[in-house]
Write a protein that binds this DNA or RNA. Structure first.
Length: 634
RNA sequence: GGGCCCGUAGCUCAGCCCGGAUAGAGCGGCGGCCUUCUAAGCCGUAGAGGUGGACCGCGGAGGACCCGGGUUCGAAUCCCGGCGGGCCCGCCA
């Protein structure tokens, strides 16, 4: 048993079940008390007030032997409060710690379980932006959390290399190759260069399209079109400010081209593998962008195990079409055809099959078009094929797809269609891990217009602000980098994914308010004590006869860690870990002021050193889960 | 029009699934603490509620987690109906 609190809890459960026999009541429930001053665990007896009286409860309590792990059992206001004996809990804690060492917190709960986590999966046409930051960090923290609990986790990134947006960047790249490479040779990140190529090419396409539209439009319509053109011109202008030469090249080469037409040609050519040159140029440009995105992820400590190319897994092997054909054969009554397009009546299917009783679905689901009139597949169709592949590739117990909440309908479609095709387990074990968007006040973000705040920018900014305070440490740059990364990771990992996140520079970067650096600082203080102590703390120490106040609080908090991790993993909520670390840090920082370690007398000195050793381990493991870098000095 | 999520102190949030004791934190405010293990820290304090009164004591009622109902011995928590905010409802991804 590697969870100290769990040991006490099972003692308390035993105690309570004895009590329920004594009282002749079934279903007494042990829960953590919200009034810690009264006790750690509590049992509510209110609902039995008419069946038993207080005297009989007190009598029953006096008949049951108390566990050595309880300091007190009391009966107040119809609550039975059981308090933990801090001394025995401390012994338990140190026992566990002696046994597992740096593995403290791992309960092996998910041993033998296999997870596939898909996260980020950004369009490979521009740098990652703030929204992706939330996605990547949530996904990565989940992966770390589940791995920490013993699960076998494989992290996948879906490379969305089909569809128009990729053709824009490829076309732009094809006419500006030398310039792109020259910039990369100068050290500019490839995704940033390609981001400019993409949004410029897209703007050129839009302008050319609108211009043609204008020719046979009435006066009112024409005015509208002109103002739209102006907007796209301003996109070009903004890109021009960033890199005039590159944008000039693009405008010169593509200004007179019917870009939209070429894009459609290329799109077809790529999907059907008709033109080797197109395939190569698309692959090259996507790879370049991915290199850049990968570098950003790596800077945040995020590693991806598998890069799954949409083209290979769903299009070139015909998997997406197979989905459609099977659906047509199996459920013809739910298929609607209109001029070559194919639509699945998902809402009716869900109602008829009573699917809502089987899986968690929104109360409303729209119909879903699977094939366009021109015979090409849609993103969602390909995603269905991909979802199936995710289950086939390594037979995971669960596939967790970290995808923004705005995609809840298509994600529901994916699961419904898997179910319809008879892949029931696959459908039930596909989780849309939904998170809310990141808002940046005052900025309307649009990746197509090149309007976004890149993840690189905010990391840079965070690091720069950290640098202002690292002073003349010999490794100031390195420390600043870790603090900046820690701050960013903490912001995204510590918020409830279900809530929209307001991203305000001053708030995220305010290290007083932000707890990433606060946690790191806490670790530094603990580390400092251990370093000054010199030797590795002995964990087989005598526990002082009295533990009270903050010392007791600290022991209990440290003992809770395995529980907290397990709960976070089962609920897929890395933010629970962040929350826990935060309150642990608060307790320790108060403790630090009040309880000297190195200068205290025995047995306190040794005991406290051991406690600090546990604390450091808990922080290290918590940091691992959240991906917050540890720092020895700051 | 429909769906999903959210509404708790000045601000950001936890608690709600599974109802129970005085609704918890952090930030910000105010006031303090660096010859003692790193002050990116800590301590104290006000703050979730209106009326009447010159003040004090005692007792009672009412209000109190967006609003209004309901269920319950008991509701921030469950149910119904509103209001406010975000996102979605494409032959885009």
């Amino acid at each position: 048993m590697n969870s100290p609190i769990e040991v006490v809890r099972s003692e308390a459960s035993k105690y309570i079940s004895l009590l329920s026999k004594e009282l002749g009541i079934e279903g007494l429930e042990l829960s953590p008390s919200d009034k810690r001053s009264q006790g750690y665990f509590t049992v509510r007896l209110h609902r039995y007030r008419n069946r038993i009286d207080e005297a009989s409860v007190l009598a029953a309590l006096s008949r049951i032997p108390k566990s050595e792990y309880f300091s007190s059992v009391s009966f107040v206001n119809w609550y039975i409060n059981i308090d933990i004996d801090a001394r025995s809990l401390a012994s338990l804690l140190l026992d566990v710690m002696r046994r597992v060492g740096s593995d403290y917190g791992k309960t092996g709960k998910l041993k033998g379980k296999k997870y596939l986590i898909e996260h980020t999966s950004a369009n490979p046409v521009h740098p990652l932006h703030v929204g992706h930051g939330r996605n990547s960090i949530l996904g990565d923290s989940l992966a770390r959390l589940l791995r920490f609990c013993g699960a076998d986790v494989s992290v996948h990134f879906y490379v969305d290399d089909c569809g128009a947006q990729v053709m824009y960047v490829a076309l732009g790249y094809s006419v500006s190759k030398n310039h792109v490479h020259e910039r990369m040779a100068r050290g500019v990140k490839p995704d940033h260069v390609m981001g400019i190529v993409y949004s410029t090419t897209y703007a050129i396409a839009e302008i050319n399209r609108l211009k043609k539209l204008k020719e046979n439009a009435n006066e009112e319509k024409a005015r509208e079109i002109v103002s739209e053109i102006d907007e796209w011109l301003s996109v070009i202008k903004r890109n021009m400010d960033e890199d005039p030469e590159l944008v000039h090249v693009l405008v010169r080469s593509l200004g007179d081209t019917d870009v939209e037409h070429v894009i459609n040609e290329w799109n077809r050519a790529y999907e059907k593998k008709l033109d080797e040159n197109v395939v190569k140029i698309v692959r090259d440009s996507v790879s370049l962008v991915l290199d850049g995105q990968r570098a950003t992820l790596r800077r945040l400590g995020i590693e991806v195990d598998s890069w799954d190319w949409e083209s290979e897994l769903t299009v070139w092997n015909d998997a997406a079409y197979r989905i459609v054909r099977e659906l047509e054969v199996k459920w013809p009554l739910y298929i609607e055809r209109k001029g070559g397009s194919i639509t699945f009546d998902a809402p009716r299917f869900v109602d008829d099959m009573r699917l809502r009783e089987v899986m968690d679905l929104p109360a409303f689901i729209p119909k879903v078009t699977l094939v366009r009139s021109d015979g090409t597949t849609l993103y969602v169709t390909r995603d269905m094929a991909y979802a199936l592949w995710q289950h086939r590739c390594c037979s995971p117990d669960k596939v967790i797809r970290v995808i923004a909440s705005e995609q809840s309908h298509p994600q529901a479609h994916v699961r419904v269609v898997l179910y319809a095709l008879g892949h029931v387990n696959e459908a039930l074990n596909t989780v849309h891990y939904s998170y809310e968007i990141v808002n940046v006040p005052g900025r309307k973000m649009s990746a197509r217009r090149g309007e976004y705040i890149s993840l690189d920018d905010i990391i840079d900014e965070a690091v720069e602000r950290a640098r202002e305070r690292t002073g003349d440490l010999h490794n100031a740059e390195e420390v600043a980098e870790k603090i900046g990364v820690g701050a960013i990771r903490h912001v995204f990992a510590s918020n409830n994914p279900r809530r929209p996140l307001e991203f305000k520079w001053d708030k995220v970067m305010d290290f007083r308010q932000n707890s990433g650096p606060f946690l790191q600082y806490t670790y530094v203080r603990a580390r400092s004590i251990l370093n000054k102590a010199g030797e590795e703390p002995n964990l087989a120490v005598e526990v002082p006869s009295t533990l009270e106040g903050l010392e007791k609080d600290l022991v209990i908090k440290l003992a809770e860690f395995p529980d907290v991790v397990e709960n976070a993993a089962m609920s897929l909520r890395p933010d629970y870990v962040a929350d826990y670390l935060n309150s642990l840090a608060l307790i320790f920082n108060s403790y630090y002021e009040k309880y000297p370690v190195l200068s205290s007398l025995e047995p306190y000195r040794s005991f406290r050193l051991a406690l600090i050793r546990v604390l450091a381990t808990v922080l290290e493991n918590g940091f691992y889960i959240l991906g917050i870098p540890t720092i020895e000095r700051m």
